[in-house]
Design a protein around this nucleic acid. Structure first.
Lengths: 216, 216
DNA sequence: CCTACCGATCGGTAGG
DNA sequence: CCTACCGATCGGTAGG
Protein backbone atom coordinates (compact mmCIF):
# COMPACT_ATOMS: atom_id res chain seq x y z
CA UNK A 1 0.00 0.00 0.00
CA UNK A 2 2.35 2.72 1.19
CA UNK A 3 5.37 0.81 -0.08
CA UNK A 4 7.07 3.87 -1.53
CA UNK A 5 6.36 6.05 1.47
CA UNK A 6 9.50 6.93 3.32
CA UNK A 7 9.21 7.59 7.00
CA UNK A 8 7.42 10.88 7.32
CA UNK A 9 9.27 12.09 10.37
CA UNK A 10 12.81 10.74 9.96
CA UNK A 11 14.55 10.19 13.29
CA UNK A 12 12.31 12.70 14.97
CA UNK A 13 13.02 11.34 18.44
CA UNK A 14 16.76 11.71 18.06
CA UNK A 15 16.62 15.29 16.74
CA UNK A 16 17.50 18.09 19.07
CA UNK A 17 14.46 19.62 20.84
CA UNK A 18 14.99 22.90 18.99
CA UNK A 19 14.60 21.18 15.62
CA UNK A 20 11.42 19.42 16.69
CA UNK A 21 9.89 22.62 17.98
CA UNK A 22 10.69 24.47 14.78
CA UNK A 23 9.28 21.65 12.74
CA UNK A 24 6.07 21.71 14.70
CA UNK A 25 5.76 25.47 14.25
CA UNK A 26 6.33 25.10 10.50
CA UNK A 27 3.70 22.40 10.13
CA UNK A 28 1.15 24.25 12.21
CA UNK A 29 1.48 27.24 9.92
CA UNK A 30 1.62 25.05 6.82
CA UNK A 31 -1.64 23.30 7.65
CA UNK A 32 -3.42 26.59 8.32
CA UNK A 33 -2.16 28.12 5.08
CA UNK A 34 -3.01 25.00 3.08
CA UNK A 35 -6.58 24.92 4.41
CA UNK A 36 -7.07 28.47 3.18
CA UNK A 37 -5.39 28.39 -0.21
CA UNK A 38 -4.61 24.79 -0.99
CA UNK A 39 -1.65 22.46 -0.65
CA UNK A 40 -0.19 23.52 -3.98
CA UNK A 41 -0.37 27.26 -3.29
CA UNK A 42 1.60 26.49 -0.13
CA UNK A 43 4.96 27.54 -1.57
CA UNK A 44 8.17 27.22 0.35
CA UNK A 45 8.97 30.90 -0.14
CA UNK A 46 5.68 32.18 1.25
CA UNK A 47 5.67 29.76 4.14
CA UNK A 48 9.24 30.75 5.00
CA UNK A 49 8.51 34.47 4.98
CA UNK A 50 5.35 33.96 7.06
CA UNK A 51 7.59 32.28 9.63
CA UNK A 52 10.42 34.79 9.19
CA UNK A 53 12.77 32.05 8.12
CA UNK A 54 14.95 31.70 5.07
CA UNK A 55 13.62 29.47 2.32
CA UNK A 56 16.57 27.11 2.54
CA UNK A 57 16.34 26.94 6.32
CA UNK A 58 12.77 25.77 6.09
CA UNK A 59 13.52 23.58 3.11
CA UNK A 60 16.17 21.68 5.07
CA UNK A 61 13.48 20.25 7.33
CA UNK A 62 11.78 18.42 4.49
CA UNK A 63 14.02 18.05 1.45
CA UNK A 64 11.25 18.49 -1.10
CA UNK A 65 7.97 20.22 -1.52
CA UNK A 66 6.21 16.87 -1.76
CA UNK A 67 7.62 15.85 1.62
CA UNK A 68 6.42 19.15 3.11
CA UNK A 69 2.94 18.51 1.71
CA UNK A 70 2.90 14.96 3.01
CA UNK A 71 4.00 16.13 6.45
CA UNK A 72 1.24 18.73 6.45
CA UNK A 73 -1.28 15.99 5.62
CA UNK A 74 -0.07 13.95 8.58
CA UNK A 75 -0.27 16.94 10.91
CA UNK A 76 -3.83 17.61 9.75
CA UNK A 77 -4.69 13.95 10.21
CA UNK A 78 -3.62 14.04 13.85
CA UNK A 79 -5.92 16.98 14.47
CA UNK A 80 -8.81 15.24 12.69
CA UNK A 81 -8.38 12.06 14.72
CA UNK A 82 -8.18 14.06 17.94
CA UNK A 83 -11.23 16.20 17.27
CA UNK A 84 -13.56 13.89 15.37
CA UNK A 85 -12.68 10.21 15.56
CA UNK A 86 -11.36 9.71 19.08
CA UNK A 87 -14.29 11.33 20.95
CA UNK A 88 -16.63 8.81 19.34
CA UNK A 89 -14.47 5.73 19.78
CA UNK A 90 -16.08 4.67 23.06
CA UNK A 91 -19.55 4.42 21.53
CA UNK A 92 -20.96 2.12 18.88
CA UNK A 93 -23.85 1.82 16.47
CA UNK A 94 -26.14 4.75 15.80
CA UNK A 95 -24.98 6.68 18.85
CA UNK A 96 -21.45 6.55 17.51
CA UNK A 97 -22.63 7.57 14.05
CA UNK A 98 -24.46 10.58 15.43
CA UNK A 99 -21.50 11.61 17.56
CA UNK A 100 -19.08 11.29 14.64
CA UNK A 101 -21.28 13.64 12.62
CA UNK A 102 -21.75 16.05 15.50
CA UNK A 103 -18.00 16.24 16.12
CA UNK A 104 -17.29 16.66 12.42
CA UNK A 105 -19.57 19.68 12.23
CA UNK A 106 -18.05 21.17 15.36
CA UNK A 107 -14.59 20.64 13.92
CA UNK A 108 -15.53 22.19 10.58
CA UNK A 109 -17.58 25.06 11.95
CA UNK A 110 -15.20 26.04 14.73
CA UNK A 111 -12.50 26.27 12.08
CA UNK A 112 -9.99 23.88 13.57
CA UNK A 113 -8.32 24.90 10.33
CA UNK A 114 -8.95 28.52 9.34
CA UNK A 115 -10.13 27.57 5.86
CA UNK A 116 -12.58 24.90 7.01
CA UNK A 117 -12.10 21.15 6.74
CA UNK A 118 -8.53 20.51 5.57
CA UNK A 119 -9.42 17.19 3.96
CA UNK A 120 -12.42 18.43 2.03
CA UNK A 121 -10.17 21.03 0.45
CA UNK A 122 -7.17 18.77 -0.07
CA UNK A 123 -9.08 15.81 -1.47
CA UNK A 124 -10.77 18.06 -3.99
CA UNK A 125 -7.52 19.72 -4.96
CA UNK A 126 -5.63 16.46 -5.39
CA UNK A 127 -8.41 14.31 -6.79
CA UNK A 128 -6.67 14.22 -10.16
CA UNK A 129 -3.02 15.02 -9.38
CA UNK A 130 -0.90 11.86 -9.26
CA UNK A 131 1.73 11.40 -6.59
CA UNK A 132 2.37 10.51 -2.96
CA UNK A 133 0.22 13.34 -1.65
CA UNK A 134 -2.81 12.16 -3.58
CA UNK A 135 -2.22 8.53 -2.61
CA UNK A 136 -2.17 9.38 1.07
CA UNK A 137 -5.22 11.65 0.92
CA UNK A 138 -7.11 8.98 -0.97
CA UNK A 139 -6.21 6.44 1.69
CA UNK A 140 -7.35 8.70 4.52
CA UNK A 141 -10.64 9.58 2.81
CA UNK A 142 -11.27 5.91 2.16
CA UNK A 143 -10.69 5.13 5.82
CA UNK A 144 -13.14 7.82 6.88
CA UNK A 145 -15.70 6.45 4.45
CA UNK A 146 -15.11 2.92 5.76
CA UNK A 147 -15.43 4.05 9.36
CA UNK A 148 -18.88 5.50 8.61
CA UNK A 149 -19.83 2.38 6.68
CA UNK A 150 -18.69 0.00 9.41
CA UNK A 151 -20.51 1.98 12.06
CA UNK A 152 -23.75 1.76 10.09
CA UNK A 153 -23.23 -1.95 9.53
CA UNK A 154 -22.67 -2.45 13.26
CA UNK A 155 -25.89 -0.60 13.98
CA UNK A 156 -27.62 -2.87 11.48
CA UNK A 157 -26.27 -5.99 13.16
CA UNK A 158 -27.53 -4.65 16.49
CA UNK A 159 -31.00 -4.18 15.04
CA UNK A 160 -30.85 -0.39 15.15
CA UNK A 161 -30.96 0.00 11.37
CA UNK A 162 -33.42 -1.57 8.95
CA UNK A 163 -32.09 -4.63 7.13
CA UNK A 164 -32.78 -3.31 3.62
CA UNK A 165 -30.41 -0.35 4.02
CA UNK A 166 -27.10 -0.26 2.12
CA UNK A 167 -24.41 1.08 4.51
CA UNK A 168 -22.20 2.22 1.63
CA UNK A 169 -24.98 4.29 0.14
CA UNK A 170 -25.75 6.02 3.42
CA UNK A 171 -22.07 6.62 4.20
CA UNK A 172 -21.73 8.23 0.79
CA UNK A 173 -24.69 10.50 1.43
CA UNK A 174 -23.34 11.61 4.80
CA UNK A 175 -19.95 12.44 3.33
CA UNK A 176 -21.54 14.28 0.43
CA UNK A 177 -23.66 16.49 2.66
CA UNK A 178 -20.74 17.27 4.97
CA UNK A 179 -18.42 18.25 2.15
CA UNK A 180 -21.08 20.34 0.47
CA UNK A 181 -21.61 22.24 3.72
CA UNK A 182 -17.91 23.02 3.91
CA UNK A 183 -17.90 24.22 0.31
CA UNK A 184 -21.01 26.36 0.63
CA UNK A 185 -19.83 27.97 3.83
CA UNK A 186 -16.81 29.16 1.86
CA UNK A 187 -18.32 30.03 -1.51
CA UNK A 188 -21.47 31.71 -0.23
CA UNK A 189 -19.99 32.85 3.11
CA UNK A 190 -23.01 31.09 4.54
CA UNK A 191 -22.34 29.52 7.91
CA UNK A 192 -25.95 28.28 7.95
CA UNK A 193 -24.93 25.66 5.42
CA UNK A 194 -23.50 23.58 8.26
CA UNK A 195 -26.82 23.52 10.08
CA UNK A 196 -28.69 22.67 6.87
CA UNK A 197 -26.40 19.75 6.17
CA UNK A 198 -26.41 18.51 9.76
CA UNK A 199 -30.21 18.56 9.74
CA UNK A 200 -30.28 16.58 6.49
CA UNK A 201 -27.90 13.99 7.90
CA UNK A 202 -29.80 13.58 11.18
CA UNK A 203 -33.10 13.12 9.39
CA UNK A 204 -31.48 10.60 7.04
CA UNK A 205 -30.30 8.67 10.08
CA UNK A 206 -33.83 8.75 11.50
CA UNK A 207 -35.09 7.32 8.22
CA UNK A 208 -32.85 4.28 8.33
CA UNK A 209 -33.45 3.62 12.03
CA UNK A 210 -35.81 0.78 12.90
CA UNK A 211 -39.15 1.70 14.47
CA UNK A 212 -38.50 0.44 17.97
CA UNK A 213 -35.15 2.24 18.23
CA UNK A 214 -36.04 5.47 16.50
CA UNK A 215 -35.33 7.54 19.64
CA UNK A 216 -31.80 6.89 20.86
CA UNK B 1 -24.54 42.96 -9.66
CA UNK B 2 -22.02 42.55 -12.49
CA UNK B 3 -21.34 46.28 -12.51
CA UNK B 4 -17.58 45.89 -12.84
CA UNK B 5 -17.76 43.24 -15.50
CA UNK B 6 -16.50 44.50 -18.81
CA UNK B 7 -17.97 42.94 -21.90
CA UNK B 8 -16.57 39.46 -22.07
CA UNK B 9 -16.29 39.28 -25.81
CA UNK B 10 -15.41 42.79 -26.89
CA UNK B 11 -16.63 43.64 -30.36
CA UNK B 12 -16.76 39.96 -31.27
CA UNK B 13 -19.09 40.54 -34.18
CA UNK B 14 -16.82 43.07 -35.82
CA UNK B 15 -13.68 40.94 -35.52
CA UNK B 16 -12.41 39.16 -38.56
CA UNK B 17 -13.64 35.57 -38.82
CA UNK B 18 -10.11 34.28 -38.36
CA UNK B 19 -9.85 35.95 -34.98
CA UNK B 20 -13.18 34.56 -33.84
CA UNK B 21 -12.23 31.07 -34.90
CA UNK B 22 -8.91 31.25 -33.11
CA UNK B 23 -10.62 32.57 -30.02
CA UNK B 24 -13.06 29.70 -30.05
CA UNK B 25 -10.28 27.18 -30.42
CA UNK B 26 -8.40 28.75 -27.52
CA UNK B 27 -11.41 28.69 -25.23
CA UNK B 28 -12.33 25.13 -26.12
CA UNK B 29 -8.85 24.00 -25.12
CA UNK B 30 -8.82 26.29 -22.09
CA UNK B 31 -12.06 24.87 -20.72
CA UNK B 32 -10.87 21.30 -21.18
CA UNK B 33 -7.54 22.02 -19.49
CA UNK B 34 -9.19 23.90 -16.65
CA UNK B 35 -11.63 21.08 -15.95
CA UNK B 36 -8.68 18.73 -15.54
CA UNK B 37 -6.22 20.80 -13.56
CA UNK B 38 -8.07 23.90 -12.41
CA UNK B 39 -8.49 27.46 -13.61
CA UNK B 40 -5.36 28.64 -11.84
CA UNK B 41 -3.10 25.93 -13.23
CA UNK B 42 -4.31 27.05 -16.66
CA UNK B 43 -1.22 29.13 -17.42
CA UNK B 44 -0.88 31.19 -20.55
CA UNK B 45 2.39 29.52 -21.43
CA UNK B 46 1.05 25.97 -21.24
CA UNK B 47 -2.15 26.81 -23.06
CA UNK B 48 -0.17 28.53 -25.80
CA UNK B 49 2.17 25.61 -26.33
CA UNK B 50 -0.75 23.15 -26.33
CA UNK B 51 -2.18 25.22 -29.18
CA UNK B 52 1.19 25.73 -30.87
CA UNK B 53 0.90 29.47 -30.50
CA UNK B 54 3.21 32.02 -28.96
CA UNK B 55 2.38 33.18 -25.48
CA UNK B 56 1.95 36.77 -26.55
CA UNK B 57 -0.18 35.80 -29.54
CA UNK B 58 -2.61 34.04 -27.24
CA UNK B 59 -2.33 36.74 -24.63
CA UNK B 60 -3.44 39.40 -27.13
CA UNK B 61 -6.89 37.83 -27.30
CA UNK B 62 -7.59 38.48 -23.64
CA UNK B 63 -5.28 41.10 -22.16
CA UNK B 64 -4.99 39.44 -18.77
CA UNK B 65 -5.11 36.05 -17.18
CA UNK B 66 -8.23 37.01 -15.28
CA UNK B 67 -9.99 37.85 -18.54
CA UNK B 68 -8.93 34.49 -19.98
CA UNK B 69 -10.35 32.74 -16.91
CA UNK B 70 -13.60 34.69 -17.11
CA UNK B 71 -13.94 33.88 -20.79
CA UNK B 72 -13.38 30.21 -20.03
CA UNK B 73 -16.14 30.36 -17.42
CA UNK B 74 -18.54 31.83 -19.98
CA UNK B 75 -17.63 29.18 -22.54
CA UNK B 76 -18.27 26.46 -19.96
CA UNK B 77 -21.54 28.09 -19.01
CA UNK B 78 -22.80 27.91 -22.59
CA UNK B 79 -22.08 24.20 -22.67
CA UNK B 80 -23.81 23.67 -19.32
CA UNK B 81 -26.92 25.54 -20.44
CA UNK B 82 -27.00 23.61 -23.70
CA UNK B 83 -26.58 20.17 -22.15
CA UNK B 84 -28.40 20.45 -18.83
CA UNK B 85 -30.74 23.41 -18.54
CA UNK B 86 -32.23 23.82 -22.00
CA UNK B 87 -33.38 20.20 -22.47
CA UNK B 88 -35.53 20.52 -19.34
CA UNK B 89 -36.94 23.97 -20.03
CA UNK B 90 -40.12 22.67 -21.67
CA UNK B 91 -41.18 20.68 -18.62
CA UNK B 92 -42.19 21.80 -15.15
CA UNK B 93 -42.57 20.51 -11.61
CA UNK B 94 -41.20 17.12 -10.63
CA UNK B 95 -40.77 16.00 -14.23
CA UNK B 96 -38.51 18.95 -14.84
CA UNK B 97 -36.61 18.29 -11.62
CA UNK B 98 -36.00 14.67 -12.59
CA UNK B 99 -34.91 15.65 -16.10
CA UNK B 100 -32.52 18.31 -14.81
CA UNK B 101 -30.87 15.70 -12.62
CA UNK B 102 -30.79 13.11 -15.36
CA UNK B 103 -29.19 15.53 -17.79
CA UNK B 104 -26.70 16.68 -15.19
CA UNK B 105 -25.50 13.13 -14.62
CA UNK B 106 -25.27 12.50 -18.35
CA UNK B 107 -23.29 15.72 -18.77
CA UNK B 108 -20.93 14.85 -15.90
CA UNK B 109 -20.54 11.18 -16.72
CA UNK B 110 -20.11 11.58 -20.47
CA UNK B 111 -17.33 14.02 -19.67
CA UNK B 112 -18.58 17.02 -21.61
CA UNK B 113 -15.41 18.35 -19.98
CA UNK B 114 -12.62 15.80 -19.74
CA UNK B 115 -12.12 16.42 -16.01
CA UNK B 116 -15.79 16.11 -15.11
CA UNK B 117 -18.13 18.94 -14.19
CA UNK B 118 -16.32 22.22 -14.84
CA UNK B 119 -18.34 24.12 -12.26
CA UNK B 120 -17.90 21.63 -9.46
CA UNK B 121 -14.16 21.96 -9.91
CA UNK B 122 -14.11 25.72 -10.43
CA UNK B 123 -16.45 26.59 -7.58
CA UNK B 124 -14.36 24.54 -5.19
CA UNK B 125 -11.13 26.05 -6.43
CA UNK B 126 -12.37 29.63 -6.22
CA UNK B 127 -14.55 29.35 -3.13
CA UNK B 128 -12.11 31.50 -1.20
CA UNK B 129 -10.18 33.43 -3.87
CA UNK B 130 -11.51 36.96 -4.26
CA UNK B 131 -11.92 38.51 -7.69
CA UNK B 132 -14.07 38.66 -10.79
CA UNK B 133 -13.71 34.95 -11.50
CA UNK B 134 -15.04 34.00 -8.08
CA UNK B 135 -17.87 36.54 -8.30
CA UNK B 136 -19.07 35.11 -11.57
CA UNK B 137 -18.81 31.48 -10.49
CA UNK B 138 -20.70 32.31 -7.30
CA UNK B 139 -23.44 33.95 -9.35
CA UNK B 140 -23.76 30.96 -11.67
CA UNK B 141 -23.83 28.44 -8.83
CA UNK B 142 -26.46 30.51 -7.06
CA UNK B 143 -28.58 30.53 -10.19
CA UNK B 144 -28.32 26.76 -10.50
CA UNK B 145 -29.33 26.39 -6.86
CA UNK B 146 -32.25 28.77 -7.38
CA UNK B 147 -33.39 26.92 -10.48
CA UNK B 148 -33.60 23.69 -8.50
CA UNK B 149 -35.35 25.48 -5.65
CA UNK B 150 -37.90 27.18 -7.89
CA UNK B 151 -38.65 23.92 -9.66
CA UNK B 152 -39.35 22.20 -6.36
CA UNK B 153 -41.53 25.11 -5.23
CA UNK B 154 -43.49 24.91 -8.49
CA UNK B 155 -44.05 21.22 -7.92
CA UNK B 156 -45.23 22.03 -4.43
CA UNK B 157 -47.70 24.62 -5.73
CA UNK B 158 -49.00 22.02 -8.20
CA UNK B 159 -49.59 19.56 -5.36
CA UNK B 160 -46.84 17.20 -6.47
CA UNK B 161 -44.71 17.79 -3.38
CA UNK B 162 -45.80 17.62 0.24
CA UNK B 163 -46.47 21.00 1.84
CA UNK B 164 -44.10 20.52 4.77
CA UNK B 165 -41.03 20.21 2.53
CA UNK B 166 -38.44 23.02 2.43
CA UNK B 167 -37.37 23.53 -1.23
CA UNK B 168 -34.06 25.10 -0.22
CA UNK B 169 -33.14 22.13 1.90
CA UNK B 170 -33.89 19.64 -0.86
CA UNK B 171 -32.09 21.71 -3.50
CA UNK B 172 -29.06 21.78 -1.23
CA UNK B 173 -29.16 18.00 -0.84
CA UNK B 174 -29.39 17.44 -4.60
CA UNK B 175 -26.46 19.72 -5.29
CA UNK B 176 -24.41 18.09 -2.52
CA UNK B 177 -24.94 14.59 -3.86
CA UNK B 178 -24.15 15.63 -7.43
CA UNK B 179 -20.92 17.37 -6.48
CA UNK B 180 -19.83 14.52 -4.28
CA UNK B 181 -20.35 12.12 -7.18
CA UNK B 182 -18.12 14.24 -9.39
CA UNK B 183 -15.47 14.36 -6.70
CA UNK B 184 -15.54 10.63 -5.93
CA UNK B 185 -15.42 9.66 -9.58
CA UNK B 186 -12.14 11.57 -9.74
CA UNK B 187 -10.52 10.74 -6.42
CA UNK B 188 -11.44 7.06 -6.31
CA UNK B 189 -11.60 6.59 -10.10
CA UNK B 190 -15.01 5.17 -9.35
CA UNK B 191 -17.55 5.83 -12.10
CA UNK B 192 -20.14 4.03 -10.02
CA UNK B 193 -20.29 7.08 -7.76
CA UNK B 194 -22.54 8.75 -10.33
CA UNK B 195 -25.06 5.94 -10.15
CA UNK B 196 -24.97 5.92 -6.35
CA UNK B 197 -25.64 9.65 -6.19
CA UNK B 198 -28.34 9.55 -8.85
CA UNK B 199 -30.09 6.78 -6.93
CA UNK B 200 -29.93 8.79 -3.73
CA UNK B 201 -31.39 11.84 -5.47
CA UNK B 202 -34.22 9.92 -7.12
CA UNK B 203 -35.23 8.27 -3.88
CA UNK B 204 -35.13 11.63 -2.11
CA UNK B 205 -37.48 13.00 -4.77
CA UNK B 206 -39.80 10.03 -4.19
CA UNK B 207 -39.80 10.85 -0.48
CA UNK B 208 -40.98 14.41 -0.96
CA UNK B 209 -43.60 13.51 -3.56
CA UNK B 210 -47.22 13.42 -2.41
CA UNK B 211 -48.91 9.99 -2.27
CA UNK B 212 -51.26 10.40 -5.20
CA UNK B 213 -48.51 11.64 -7.54
CA UNK B 214 -45.71 9.35 -6.44
CA UNK B 215 -45.46 7.72 -9.88
CA UNK B 216 -44.82 10.38 -12.55
C1' DC C 1 -0.22 37.10 -34.76
C1' DC C 2 5.31 37.15 -33.89
C1' DT C 3 10.27 37.76 -31.38
C1' DA C 4 12.46 39.43 -27.66
C1' DC C 5 12.37 40.84 -23.46
C1' DC C 6 11.02 42.33 -18.16
C1' DG C 7 10.90 41.51 -12.89
C1' DA C 8 9.09 38.19 -9.72
C1' DT C 9 8.76 33.81 -8.00
C1' DC C 10 9.04 28.90 -8.25
C1' DG C 11 11.55 24.36 -6.34
C1' DG C 12 15.93 23.22 -5.38
C1' DT C 13 21.40 23.26 -4.58
C1' DA C 14 26.22 24.58 -2.92
C1' DG C 15 28.71 25.55 0.74
C1' DG C 16 29.14 26.85 5.12
C1' DC D 1 19.89 27.30 10.43
C1' DC D 2 22.14 31.06 6.86
C1' DT D 3 23.69 33.64 2.13
C1' DA D 4 24.06 33.23 -2.46
C1' DC D 5 22.92 31.21 -6.26
C1' DC D 6 20.70 27.95 -10.33
C1' DG D 7 17.39 27.15 -14.47
C1' DA D 8 12.55 27.23 -15.36
C1' DT D 9 8.36 29.39 -15.53
C1' DC D 10 5.07 32.82 -14.28
C1' DG D 11 2.03 37.10 -16.02
C1' DG D 12 2.80 40.78 -18.74
C1' DT D 13 5.04 44.49 -22.14
C1' DA D 14 7.47 46.72 -26.26
C1' DG D 15 7.54 47.00 -30.79
C1' DG D 16 6.52 45.39 -34.94
Amino acid sequence: MASLARDVRPAAQSQRPRGIKTRRAILSRAVALASLEGLEALTIGRLASALRMSKSGLFAHFGSKEELQCSAVEAAREIFVEKVIRPASALSGLRRLRLLCKRWFEYAEARAFPGGCFFSAASLEFDDRPGRVRDRILELMQRWQLLLERTIREAQAAGEVARGIDPRQVAFEIQALAMAANWRSRLFKDRGAFATAHRAILSRIEQIATRERRRR
